[in-house]
Structure formats: structure tokens, C-alpha cells
């Protein structure tokens, strides 16, 4: 048994200059178990008390399905919106020296530090029918607060720093000479960006997307203020879970939680594989 274990570890071991593969893998697994896996296992355990039929019934109720669609859909849309916006921001901050750049740089992290409820209240005040922006949009027939669009706005707000902060260091490291080389070979600025800069940034951009998405799926505080929380229309899964907990339906809550967990994990795994593939293609 021990021999087999040692054997299989040494088969995986990457012969390199860093010692201590065994102990470091051990610690990694220990902490990962304590902090991530065991709590998640509890969800699985709780959900399994339901039995398969009851589980399927719980998670496939129209209200649950609608909430899952809204949660994942809005998070994906928000992360997709954050990609170009975050890239642009990171580009401006890392490429152009302008007065107040440090200030803008610091402002970008604010959505992470801000209590999410504060963000939610601020956004609601801004976009509600009588808010600063909402009062101009309402006559045009555009309603953002208390709709899924409001959820997307909130998620764009909280997810933005993740894209900026993952792309920025890559942009700063990018060899300016590669862009100059492209220019001297006759490439237009757009061709240079698409063919030279973007492939270098793409893996980081995708990581930023994954982080923004993960944050968006899990976001609660800012969304519940702006969403209006109407079942079937603008109710996110985390809120539905809380509602069910308040009604002492622990099994139902954990069933939904398990679906969220598996869905998020599957999507993140997919994005990370894509990112790894891009990175591998980038620097072989």
C-alpha cells in the first residue's frame, strides 16, 4: 500500500530544482480539504438525505430552474461585458501616463473592498425609476432596476476589478518591441492588436472572465437590492436558497446549492482548460 503510494507519487513527480514535492502536495491537499472540500462535502451529504426523486423535484421546479437560469445567465453576460471594458481599462492604465492615473488605479479595486450591500443600495438609488439615471431612462421605456438587466449591472460592477487585475500585469510585461515589429512589417494598428497583442493577453483575459463569472454567480448582497427579487423574473438562486432556509427547508436549500456548485465547477473547469490550452499555444 505504502509502496504503491510512493511509487505513484514518484511517477508524477516533476524532476526539477524545487525540493519537497511530497510534503508540499500533502499540505496542499490537507488545507484544500479543511477549507474547501469538507464544507462542500457537507452540502453533498445534506442533499443526499433527500433521495433522488425528491432532489430532482426540488431543483427542477419552475421557480428553481428560472433562478438558476438568471444566476448563471446574468453572471455569464456580466463577465462577457467585463472582458472588453476591463481590457480597455487595463490598457489605458498600463499604457498611457496621464494625470490621476494612480487614483484611477486605486478606484478599480473599490468594488472588491466595498460591502456588497452598499454597492447594491448605491446602484439601486442610481437606476431606480426616481434615481439620478433612472429618471431619464424611464421615459424612454428603459427600466434597469428590478429587472434582470439590473442584476447584470450589479454583477458588472463587482466583477470588473477581476478582469482588470488579471490583464494588467500581462499588458505591462508585453514586449513593446513585438508591436513595433508588427508595425514595421506593415500591420495596421488593428492587425497588430488582433494578431500580436491579443493572443498574448488572451489567457489572462480568460482567467479574468472566469474570476468575474465566479464572483457573479456567488454574488448576493449587491444583487438583492437592485434585482427586485420577483420569482421567475429576477430572483437569483442564492436568494432562493436563503428563502428556503428561512422556511426551514434545509434539504431544498442544499439541493439547489449542490446544483450551483456543480454548475459553477463545470463551467470553471471548462474555462480553465480553455485558458490552459491558450497559454500552452502561446509559449511552447
Amino acid at each position: 500500500m505504502t509502496a504503491t503510494a510512493t511509487n505513484s507519487i514518484s511517477r508524477w513527480r516533476v524532476s526539477g530544482s524545487l525540493p519537497g514535492f511530497g510534503p508540499s502536495l500533502g499540505y496542499t491537499l490537507l488545507y484544500l480539504s479543511l477549507i474547501v472540500l469538507i464544507p462542500l462535502a457537507m452540502i453533498l451529504l445534506r442533499a443526499s438525505e433527500l433521495g433522488l426523486d425528491a432532489f430532482i423535484a426540488k431543483v427542477s421546479s419552475p421557480r428553481a430552474l428560472a433562478s438558476l437560469r438568471i444566476s448563471f445567465g446574468c453572471a455569464l453576460i456580466a463577465a462577457a461585458i467585463n472582458m472588453p471594458i476591463g481590457l480597455l481599462l487595463a490598457w489605458v492604465i498600463s499604457r498611457y501616463p496621464f494625470p490621476g492615473r494612480r487614483l484611477v488605479d486605486a478606484l478599480i479595486d473599490l468594488p472588491i473592498a466595498l460591502p456588497t450591500a452598499v454597492a447594491g443600495i448605491a446602484l439601486t438609488a442610481l437606476y431606480a425609476r426616481n434615481g439620478w439615471l433612472g429618471q431619464w431612462l424611464a421615459p424612454l421605456g428603459i427600466e434597469l432596476a428590478f429587472t434582470p438587466a439590473g442584476i447584470v449591472i450589479a454583477l458588472v460592477f463587482v466583477g470588473l476589478p477581476f478582469v482588470v487585475r488579471t490583464v494588467q500585469p500581462v499588458l505591462q510585461d508585453i514586449e513593446h518591441e513585438q508591436e513595433e515589429a508588427a508595425e514595421s512589417l506593415g500591420a495596421t494598428p488593428l492587425q497588430t492588436f488582433v494578431r500580436v497583442s491579443l493572443p498574448t493577453i488572451a489567457p489572462a483575459l480568460l482567467t479574468g472572465f472566469a474570476l468575474a463569472f465566479a464572483r457573479g454567480v456567488g454574488e448576493y448582497g449587491s444583487v438583492i437590492f437592485i434585482a427586485g427579487n420577483m420569482p421567475m423574473i429576477s430572483e437569483i438562486t442564492p436568494l432562493l436558497i436563503v428563502t428556503q432556509l428561512e422556511q426551514y427547508d434545509y434539504a431544498g436549500a442544499t439541493a439547489l446549492a449542490l446544483v450551483m456548485l456543480l454548475g459553477s465547477f463545470a463551467l470553471l473547469l471548462l474555462i480553465n482548460s480553455l485558458q490552459a490550452w491558450l497559454a500552452h499555444r502561446g509559449r511552447r
Binding site: 518591441e177 513585438q178 513595433e180 515589429a181 508588427a182 514595421s184 500591420a187 495596421t188 493572443p199 498574448t200
Partner: peptide, 25 residues
Amino acid sequence: GFVFQHYALFRHMNVFENIAFGLRV
């Protein structure tokens, strides 16, 4: 034609695509 001190090759392209770049654009 400009040759940079540190080559400035496009790292995500193979040798063929690096050389073909000036024609492709």
C-alpha cells in the same frame, strides 16, 4: 526591415507564421 536586439519574435506563432506575418497583413 527592422531586426530588434532581442528579436521581438511573435511567441505564439511558429517560425513559418512569424516569417509569413509581413505578407499576411
